[in-house]
Amino acid sequence: SDCSAVLEKTREFFQICDIEGKGFITRRDMQRLNGELPQSAEELENVFDTLDTDANGYLTFEEFSSGFSEFMFGPGVVS
């Protein structure tokens, strides 16, 4: 289904960021993407802060996927 395709994509993206497979993304992981993605370090920080909704410094798969859902479908779709 569409839903599982999105989930699959989300998982792939999460793994690109979580290189070591820790199960969460840190600010440092995000900074490492600086060489691989066109975003500046500042923009990547911004992305991290936006996705890290509880601001604990760890980006879980749930936080990441809800951010991705907002990007795909607009805010308020996933509760």
């Binding site: 993605l37 066109p38 923009e43 911004n46 996705l51 951010g67 990007f71």
Partner: peptide, 29 residues
């Protein structure tokens, strides 16, 4: 409303980020 502006700016940054991941994944710039 500055808060709305901030949210919109963040949305743009998020969109760029996820678009970049999409490009990276598919290899299409």
């Amino acid at each position: 409303d500055p808060n709305m502006k901030g949210a919109a700016a963040n949305e743009g940054v998020l969109a760029n980020f996820f678009n970049s991941l999409l490009s990276k994944k598919t290899g299409v710039p």
